[in-house]
Design a protein around this nucleic acid. Structure first.
Length: 451
RNA sequence: GCGAUCGUAGCUCAGUUGGUUAGAGCGCCGGUUUGUGGUACCGGAGGUCGGGGAUUCGAGCUCCCUCGGUCGCCCCA
């Protein structure tokens, strides 16, 4: 690489091959699941006026105070690359009059930007999938959203990740609890870690999930949100947990779970890998894979009418790390022209195949042996060879790569023969599935239970 | 913003107390083999040792600065 070649921006990634397939798999699975739950697709601008984020997330949060990519445009407006989805979606809801669609179930995905120190599972440009229900006050909305998250993780094949659930109560519950925490921790302030002393000023709730050993002794007896919940808030949380139980979504209560952004009320949740699990190992210090909650106060902070809403977001990179590498799909047919004169026929055959929805690649450079070798590595079922002899006879050599069998065929029947091979391969896969199924059946006891 | 650690070929890495022309494996290209996948053997291309400065007769190796990667803290998806 030359010294003159510009480098990529710190914390950005160029994703390729199996990693890119894993990324795409996460997005495709999300799109599929989101349709099952009837969430409507929305597209959002990547930047907004800075105030959209500053007002909704809270001026004192780390995200707003030191992590935003903000700049002045040529017209002098302060703009910001979105550090999260929710605030922009709320703004769009208000400015487009989407109240008419309420309750609106919306889903989107794309890049977000945060000026942070990059580390495992954390980037300056990162990507999230996002789901929101806006204009729904009932706990059923929380349940539906969480059921979707749970199903998504299952469909991605991710294991060892559990729903941690908490309630922050309504506005007044939350404020009373917060005040009690400040009282409690202020009394022992000089014994707390430096970080927690600072949190006492900025975000006292955060002390509860401190990792510092000096804070630990005080956490056990700290005021609990449950003691400050209003009857309504308590009933709301019970409705959510009852709904989750009914929907078969497993959860654990996490009393210390708080969310960093100011707008959260009531339900707060994170999907976190179990300690010691492979998932926890893969994610390093970035434990949360999907997080969100209810944000009933957000719309008002943007000057809109009081509008209840719930939502979550999940990091695509983090999910992709748990999904592992996914092989790039093999090509079905490889077309190999021998010499310049065969190029025309080769292109014609290539087009014929692709129009029949058969994936095909042409190998037209290098030695013949090299081309065959490449065709073989590509995973193609058949190599279609066209040289002088084939041009004059108007046929192509159809070589089944698995067996080495080769015969002269009319180009018109080539797509069908490739489809035959595909079907054979698929049948073998189905046979394997049946074999696995029979193995599973063998461990079912006479009463029909898995053992 | 703080701390630790690492930057040598396209990739993974070796390189002794500072000493001649910086190496290996894989990959790539060619040959043994003129239109057929594997293996083996032979040959070739590919490096301003992240960048800049300092010390020295001499720096991939020591020192300083800087950029970047990785991993933690903070924070967060």
């Amino acid at each position: 690489m030359s010294k003159n070649t510009p480098k990529a921006i710190r914390g950005t990634q160029d994703i390729f091959g199996a990693d890119a397939e894993a990324f795409a798999f996460v997005v495709e699975t999300f799109e599929r699941v989101r349709r099952l739950y009837r969430f409507r697709r929305i597209e959002m601008p990547v930047f907004e006026k800075t105030e959209v984020f500053a007002r909704s997330l809270g001026e004192t949060t780390d995200v707003v105070s030191k992590e935003m990519y903000s700049f002045e445009d040529r017209g002098g407006d302060s703009l910001t690359l979105r550090p999260e989805f929710t605030a922009g979606i709320a703004r769009a809801y208000l400015t487009n009059g989407w109240q008419q669609h309420a309750p609106l179930k919306a889903a989107t995905h794309g890049p977000l930007f945060r000026y942070e120190r990059p580390q495992k599972g954390r980037y300056r440009q990162f990507h999230q999938i996002d789901a929101e229900i806006i204009g729904a006050a009932e706990p059923q909305a929380d349940v539906e959203l969480l059921a979707m998250a749970d199903q998504l993780l299952k469909e991605l094949g991710i294991e060892g990740v559990r729903l941690h659930l908490n309630t922050l109560g309504d506005g007044t519950s939350r404020e009373a609890w917060r005040a009690a925490l400040i009282d409690y921790f202020s009394a022992v302030k000089d014994q707390l870690s430096e970080d927690s002393q600072e949190r006492l000023e900025k975000n006292p709730l955060r002390i509860l999930d401190s990792k510092d050993g000096r804070d630990r002794p005080f956490l056990v007896d700290a005021p609990k949100i449950d003691d400050f919940l209003s009857d309504e808030a308590r009933a709301f949380f019970k409705a959510v947990t009852d709904g989750l139980d009914a929907a078969g979504v497993k959860w654990v209560r996490a009393e210390a779970l708080v969310r960093g952004l100011d707008y959260y009320r009531h339900t707060a949740f994170e999907f976190i890998p179990d300690e010691g699990s492979a998932a926890a190992d893969a994610l390093g210090a970035q434990s949360t894979v999907l997080g969100g909650g209810r944000y009933d106060g957000l719309m008002e902070s943007l000057g809109g009418p009081a509008t209840p809403a719930v939502g979550w977001a999940a990091g695509i990179e983090r999910l992709a790390m748990l999904v592992g590498e996914i092989a790039e799909p093999a090509v079905d047919a490889a077309v190999i022209p021998l010499g310049e004169s065969a190029l025309g026929n080769a292109m014609a055959l290539l087009n014929r195949l692709r129009r029949e929805h058969i994936s095909a690649e042409i190998f037209a450079s290098g030695k013949i042996k090299k081309r065959m070798s490449r065709a073989n590595e590509s995973g193609a079922l058949a190599a279609l060879i066209i040289g002088e002899d084939e041009i004059s006879s108007g046929k192509v050599q159809f070589k089944t790569l698995a067996t080495g069998e080769q015969k002269l065929l009319d180009p018109a029947v080539v797509p069908l023969r490739v489809l035959d091979l595909k079907m054979e391969r698929d049948m073998e896969n189905v046979a394997d599935l049946f074999a696995d199924f029979e193995d599973d059946m063998a461990v079912i006891d006479p009463e029909g239970r898995y053992t």
